[in-house]
Protein backbone atom coordinates (compact mmCIF):
# COMPACT_ATOMS: atom_id res chain seq x y z
CA UNK A 1 0.00 0.00 0.00
CA UNK A 2 1.47 3.37 -0.98
CA UNK A 3 2.23 5.90 1.73
CA UNK A 4 0.03 9.03 1.66
CA UNK A 5 2.19 12.18 1.27
CA UNK A 6 0.99 13.49 4.66
CA UNK A 7 2.78 10.55 6.30
CA UNK A 8 6.07 10.98 4.44
CA UNK A 9 7.91 11.60 7.72
CA UNK A 10 7.49 7.93 8.70
CA UNK A 11 8.65 6.40 5.42
CA UNK A 12 12.21 5.68 6.59
CA UNK A 13 11.01 4.03 9.81
CA UNK A 14 8.68 1.83 7.77
CA UNK A 15 11.50 0.94 5.39
CA UNK A 16 13.72 0.03 8.34
CA UNK A 17 10.89 -2.19 9.64
CA UNK A 18 10.70 -3.96 6.30
CA UNK A 19 14.46 -4.48 6.18
CA UNK A 20 14.43 -6.10 9.64
CA UNK A 21 11.38 -8.32 9.15
CA UNK A 22 13.51 -11.50 9.05
CA UNK A 23 16.76 -10.26 10.60
CA UNK A 24 15.26 -8.87 13.81
CA UNK A 25 11.45 -8.97 14.13
CA UNK A 26 11.48 -6.94 17.37
CA UNK A 27 13.19 -4.07 15.55
CA UNK A 28 10.61 -4.36 12.75
CA UNK A 29 7.75 -4.39 15.28
CA UNK A 30 8.87 -1.32 17.24
CA UNK A 31 9.69 0.64 14.06
CA UNK A 32 6.10 0.04 12.96
CA UNK A 33 4.77 0.92 16.40
CA UNK A 34 6.66 4.21 16.25
CA UNK A 35 5.36 4.82 12.71
CA UNK A 36 1.83 4.11 13.92
CA UNK A 37 2.04 6.60 16.79
CA UNK A 38 3.77 9.26 14.74
CA UNK A 39 1.37 8.69 11.83
CA UNK A 40 -1.67 9.15 14.08
CA UNK A 41 -0.27 12.49 15.21
CA UNK A 42 0.50 13.57 11.65
CA UNK A 43 -2.89 12.77 10.13
CA UNK A 44 -5.46 10.21 11.11
CA UNK A 45 -8.43 12.12 9.78
CA UNK A 46 -8.20 12.08 6.00
CA UNK A 47 -9.57 8.87 4.45
CA UNK A 48 -6.30 7.89 2.75
CA UNK A 49 -4.30 8.26 5.98
CA UNK A 50 -6.94 6.47 8.06
CA UNK A 51 -6.95 3.60 5.59
CA UNK A 52 -3.17 3.39 5.69
CA UNK A 53 -3.03 3.52 9.50
CA UNK A 54 -5.74 0.87 9.90
CA UNK A 55 -3.68 -1.45 7.65
CA UNK A 56 -0.58 -0.68 9.68
CA UNK A 57 -2.47 -1.48 12.89
CA UNK A 58 -3.66 -4.79 11.37
CA UNK A 59 -0.04 -5.58 10.58
CA UNK A 60 1.09 -4.75 14.13
CA UNK A 61 -1.61 -6.94 15.68
CA UNK A 62 -0.71 -9.82 13.38
CA UNK A 63 2.96 -9.43 14.26
CA UNK A 64 2.27 -9.36 17.98
CA UNK A 65 0.19 -12.54 17.74
CA UNK A 66 2.80 -14.29 15.64
CA UNK A 67 5.67 -13.24 17.89
CA UNK A 68 3.97 -14.01 21.18
CA UNK A 69 7.03 -15.89 22.43
CA UNK A 70 9.44 -12.96 21.96
CA UNK A 71 10.03 -11.33 25.33
CA UNK A 72 11.14 -8.13 23.64
CA UNK A 73 7.67 -7.83 22.15
CA UNK A 74 5.53 -9.07 25.04
CA UNK A 75 7.45 -6.97 27.60
CA UNK A 76 8.14 -3.41 26.52
CA UNK A 77 10.90 -2.97 29.11
CA UNK A 78 12.82 -5.78 27.39
CA UNK A 79 11.93 -4.26 24.02
CA UNK A 80 13.29 -0.90 25.12
CA UNK A 81 16.65 -2.44 26.10
CA UNK A 82 16.76 -4.39 22.84
CA UNK A 83 16.14 -1.36 20.60
CA UNK A 84 18.58 0.78 22.58
CA UNK A 85 21.30 -1.89 22.31
CA UNK A 86 20.65 -2.36 18.62
CA UNK A 87 20.81 1.40 17.97
CA UNK A 88 24.05 1.62 19.92
CA UNK A 89 25.52 -1.32 18.01
CA UNK A 90 24.71 0.43 14.71
CA UNK A 91 26.13 3.69 15.99
CA UNK A 92 29.36 2.13 17.28
CA UNK A 93 29.94 0.22 14.04
CA UNK A 94 29.56 3.39 11.97
CA UNK A 95 31.59 5.46 14.44
CA UNK A 96 34.41 2.92 14.36
CA UNK A 97 34.45 2.94 10.55
CA UNK A 98 34.42 6.74 10.62
CA UNK A 99 37.33 7.00 13.07
CA UNK A 100 39.27 4.44 11.01
CA UNK A 101 38.79 6.55 7.90
CA UNK A 102 36.67 3.93 6.13
CA UNK A 103 33.84 5.80 4.45
CA UNK A 104 31.25 3.79 2.57
CA UNK A 105 27.51 3.43 1.98
CA UNK A 106 27.06 0.82 4.68
CA UNK A 107 28.43 3.01 7.43
CA UNK A 108 26.32 5.95 6.26
CA UNK A 109 23.28 3.71 6.46
CA UNK A 110 24.28 2.51 9.94
CA UNK A 111 24.57 6.08 11.20
CA UNK A 112 21.20 6.91 9.70
CA UNK A 113 19.52 3.74 11.00
CA UNK A 114 20.91 4.44 14.49
CA UNK A 115 19.28 7.88 14.36
CA UNK A 116 15.95 6.39 13.22
CA UNK A 117 16.07 3.88 16.07
CA UNK A 118 16.52 6.71 18.57
CA UNK A 119 13.25 8.11 17.20
CA UNK A 120 11.73 4.67 17.81
CA UNK A 121 12.91 4.75 21.45
CA UNK A 122 10.44 7.57 22.05
CA UNK A 123 7.61 5.00 22.09
CA UNK A 124 8.92 3.93 25.50
CA UNK A 125 8.95 7.41 27.01
CA UNK A 126 10.96 10.59 26.95
CA UNK A 127 14.39 10.33 25.33
CA UNK A 128 17.49 10.79 27.47
CA UNK A 129 19.88 13.63 26.75
CA UNK A 130 22.41 11.01 25.58
CA UNK A 131 19.86 9.56 23.13
CA UNK A 132 19.20 13.02 21.73
CA UNK A 133 22.91 13.78 21.32
CA UNK A 134 23.55 10.41 19.64
CA UNK A 135 20.68 11.01 17.23
CA UNK A 136 21.87 14.48 16.34
CA UNK A 137 25.46 13.33 15.80
CA UNK A 138 24.48 10.21 13.82
CA UNK A 139 22.13 12.13 11.53
CA UNK A 140 24.68 14.86 10.94
CA UNK A 141 27.44 12.31 10.22
CA UNK A 142 25.23 10.40 7.78
CA UNK A 143 24.39 13.57 5.87
CA UNK A 144 27.93 14.94 5.96
CA UNK A 145 29.65 11.73 4.78
CA UNK A 146 27.00 11.16 2.12
CA UNK A 147 27.53 14.69 0.75
CA UNK A 148 31.32 14.29 0.80
CA UNK A 149 31.23 10.95 -1.05
CA UNK A 150 28.81 12.38 -3.61
CA UNK A 151 31.16 15.31 -4.24
CA UNK A 152 34.26 13.15 -4.33
CA UNK A 153 35.64 14.71 -1.13
CA UNK A 154 37.19 13.00 1.87
CA UNK A 155 35.15 13.50 5.05
CA UNK A 156 36.97 14.98 8.02
Amino acid sequence: MSLPPQLKAIQHHLRTAQEHEQRDPAVAYYCRLYAMQAGMKLDSKTPECRKFLVKLMDQLETMKNALGNHESITQEIVGHAHIENYALKMFLYADNEDRSGRFHKNMIKSFYTASLLVDVLSVFGELSEENIQHRKYARWKATHIHTCLKNGETPQ
Binding site: L33, M36, M40, S44, K45, R50, V54, M57, E61, E76
Partner: peptide, 28 residues
Protein backbone atom coordinates in the same frame (compact mmCIF):
# COMPACT_ATOMS: atom_id res chain seq x y z
CA UNK B 1 -24.68 18.88 8.86
CA UNK B 2 -22.71 16.65 6.50
CA UNK B 3 -19.40 17.99 7.72
CA UNK B 4 -20.48 17.55 11.36
CA UNK B 5 -21.39 13.91 10.67
CA UNK B 6 -18.12 13.45 8.72
CA UNK B 7 -16.10 14.87 11.60
CA UNK B 8 -17.92 12.64 14.06
CA UNK B 9 -17.22 9.51 11.96
CA UNK B 10 -13.54 10.51 11.69
CA UNK B 11 -13.35 11.07 15.44
CA UNK B 12 -14.94 7.66 16.19
CA UNK B 13 -12.51 5.93 13.85
CA UNK B 14 -9.63 7.78 15.43
CA UNK B 15 -10.81 6.65 18.88
CA UNK B 16 -10.99 3.11 17.58
CA UNK B 17 -7.38 3.31 16.41
CA UNK B 18 -6.32 4.75 19.76
CA UNK B 19 -8.11 1.93 21.57
CA UNK B 20 -6.50 -0.71 19.38
CA UNK B 21 -3.13 0.88 20.01
CA UNK B 22 -3.70 0.85 23.78
CA UNK B 23 -4.79 -2.82 23.64
CA UNK B 24 -1.75 -3.69 21.54
CA UNK B 25 0.46 -2.18 24.23
CA UNK B 26 -1.52 -3.80 27.06
CA UNK B 27 -2.47 -0.38 28.35
CA UNK B 28 -6.15 -1.23 28.87
Amino acid sequence: TGSVVGASVASTEQDELSQRLARLRDQV
